[in-house]
Structures are given as structure tokens and as C-alpha cells.
Measured scan of single mutants.
Amino acid sequence: WKVTVKGVEYTFDNPEEAKKFAEELAKKKGGQIHYKDGEFQVH
């Protein structure tokens, strides 16, 4: 499971962890999460 933040990729074994990480980042940066092709992208 991948989380991509401004072109930087983070990989997680667990989808729950990936989702949590993406949500935290989106909150911090005031961005939005897009889920696409099996990965979370924070913009």
C-alpha cells in the first residue's frame, strides 16, 4: 500500500496504517486525500 505525498512515496504493509498516515498528513497540511490505483495520494 502506497501513500504518495508531493511525489514522495511511502510504503506500508497494512492498508489501515497507510490510510491513517494519509489522513494525519492531510489534516496537518490541510490537503485532500485521493485514493487511486491502490494508493493514497495527499495533495
Rank of each mutant, 00 (worst) to 15 (best):
H34A: 07
N14D: 10
E24R: 08
H43I: 15
G31W: 14
A26K: 04
E17K: 07
F40E: 04
F40H: 03
K6Y: 15
E17S: 11
A22M: 07
L25V: 13
V42C: 03
A18G: 01
E17C: 09
E9A: 09
E16D: 13
G31E: 06
A26V: 15
A22G: 02
L25A: 10
E9Y: 05
W1D: 03
E39T: 07
D13W: 06
D37K: 02
Y35H: 07
K28I: 13
E39H: 09
T4R: 08
V3N: 00
G30Y: 06
Q32N: 10
A26I: 14
Y10D: 00
K6F: 14
K27P: 02
E39C: 05
Y10R: 01
I33M: 05
G30I: 04
A26Y: 04
G7W: 02
Q41M: 12
E24Y: 10
F21T: 01
G7P: 01
E17V: 07
E17Y: 03
E9C: 13
L25I: 14
N14L: 05
H43L: 14
E16W: 14
G38L: 06
G38E: 05
D13Y: 05
G31C: 14
D37V: 01
Y10G: 00
Y10I: 02
F12T: 00
K6G: 15
V5W: 15
E16R: 08
H43Q: 11
A26C: 13
A22P: 00
G30L: 05
K28G: 11
G7K: 01
G30R: 08
V3D: 02
G7N: 08
V3T: 02
H34N: 09
K27E: 11
T4K: 08
V8W: 09
V3L: 01
A26E: 04
K20N: 10
K29S: 15
F21I: 01
P15H: 15
G38C: 11
A22K: 02
E17D: 13
V8M: 13
G7Q: 02
Q32L: 10
E24V: 08
K29Y: 15
W1T: 11
K19M: 12
P15L: 15
K29D: 15
G31T: 07
D13N: 11
A18E: 00
K2I: 13
H43M: 12
K36I: 14
G7V: 01
E23W: 06
K29E: 15
N14E: 04
G7Y: 02
Q41N: 07
V5T: 08
D13R: 04
K2T: 09
H34M: 08
A22T: 04
F12S: 00
L25G: 02
K19S: 07
D13L: 06
P15D: 02
F40I: 11
H34Y: 13
H34W: 08
K36M: 11
I33Q: 03
D13E: 09
E39G: 05
E24M: 12
Y35W: 10
N14T: 13
Y10H: 04
H43G: 09
P15E: 14
Q32P: 06
K29M: 15
L25P: 01
K2P: 05
G38H: 13
T4L: 08
E23H: 05
K27Q: 12
K27M: 11
K6D: 15
K20V: 08
W1H: 09
V5Q: 02
E17M: 07
K19Y: 14
K6Q: 14
H34T: 12
G38R: 12
E23T: 08
D13H: 06
K27S: 12
I33P: 05
V42W: 08
H34P: 02
T11D: 07
E24N: 09
P15V: 14
K36S: 13
E17Q: 11
K28M: 13
W1G: 05
D37F: 01
E9V: 13
V8S: 05
A18S: 01
G31N: 07
K29R: 11
D13T: 10
G31Q: 06
K28E: 14
H43D: 13
F21N: 00
Y10E: 01
Q32I: 13
A18D: 00
V42F: 04
V5I: 14
K20R: 12
F12Q: 00
A22Y: 02
V5S: 11
A18L: 04
A18Q: 01
I33F: 06
E16P: 01
K19T: 05
F40M: 06
K29P: 09
K29N: 15
Y10L: 02
E39Q: 07
K20C: 14
K28H: 10
A26F: 03
E9N: 03
F21Y: 04
W1P: 05
E17H: 07
Q41S: 09
E24D: 12
G7D: 09
V42K: 03
K19I: 10
K20Q: 12
Y35K: 07
P15N: 04
D37I: 01
W1M: 09
K20M: 10
E17A: 11
E39N: 09
N14Q: 04
A26N: 03
K2M: 06
K2N: 03
E9G: 02
G7R: 01
G38V: 03
E9I: 12
K2L: 09
G30Q: 07
K36E: 10
K20P: 00
E16S: 10
G31L: 12
E9F: 06
Q41H: 14
E9Q: 10
G38W: 06
N14C: 11
A22W: 03
V8A: 11
K29A: 14
V3E: 02
G7S: 04
E16M: 12
V8R: 10
G7I: 03
K28W: 06
F40C: 07
K20H: 11
V3G: 01
T11V: 14
Q32T: 14
K6H: 15
F21L: 02
K28L: 14
K6L: 14
D13S: 11
E23D: 06
K2Y: 05
A22N: 01
K27L: 10
V5C: 15
K36C: 13
H34I: 14
F12E: 00
Q32D: 13
K19F: 13
E16F: 12
A18Y: 04
E16N: 10
V5R: 01
W1N: 09
D37M: 00
K29T: 15
